[in-house]
């Protein structure tokens, strides 16, 4: 068998596999680009309404963040919405794959402080959760379950109190 043929088959199969592996990265980049949002800025998605019904899931109100840890860690703080049926903070890597999830039932206090890092971090301080990102970039999605108008107003107050801080 010609060695070039063997190499060609190998290249073909590898390229096909690489396409599967790279596709999620491409989708992630496309979503970031389409959103027009800056990196390391926490934003809140509007609830669906007749003009802009593009919220992915009407069960939730969302806050989200496209992060870049190349300049340092990020500190995410906020209140735990105790009166909701569901609240979670999900972390996705540069390939859009989920790698960590902080749930309301994991947080003992009424507030949370999460340090998002991609490298070695100082000793964990009391009450601070550390989330180790597998990549320097990715996405954080905060989900607040909304069942009625009362929940809606409550969530909006909680969202306004959540903060993101860039650490040196």
């Amino acid at each position: 068998m010609n060695i070039r043929l063997i190499i060609a088959v190998f290249l073909g199969v590898t390229s096909c596999w690489a396409t599967f592996s790279m596709y999620p990265y491409f989708i992630q980049l496309a979503i970031e680009w389409k959103s027009g949002k800056e990196k390391n800025v926490l934003f809140h998605l509007k609830a669906p309404n007749p003009d802009t019904p593009d919220t992915p899931n009407p069960d939730f109100l969302y806050s989200a963040l496209f992060y870049d840890l190349s300049k340092g860690d990020l500190l995410l703080t906020g209140d735990v919405p105790e009166q909701l049926d569901y609240f979670s903070i999900a972390f996705y890597g540069a390939n859009s794959f989920h790698y960590a999830l902080v749930k309301a039932r994991d947080i003992k206090e009424k507030t949370y402080t999460i340090r998002l890092t991609n490298g070695n971090t100082p000793t964990q301080s009391s009450g601070e959760l550390h989330v180790q990102s597998p990549s320097t970039s990715g996405t954080v999605i905060v989900r607040y379950m909304r069942r009625n108008a009362e929940d809606h107003a409550y969530i909006q107050r909680i969202q306004q109190r959540s903060m993101l801080k860039q650490l040196p």
């Binding site: 060609a8 290249l11 073909g12 199969v13 590898t14 596999w17 690489a18 396409t19």
Partner: peptide
């Protein structure tokens, strides 16, 4: 051509 064909099949 092989990498292009592989990419095309992947898509």
């Amino acid at each position: 051509a092989a990498p292009c064909v592989g990419f095309g099949i992947g898509i």
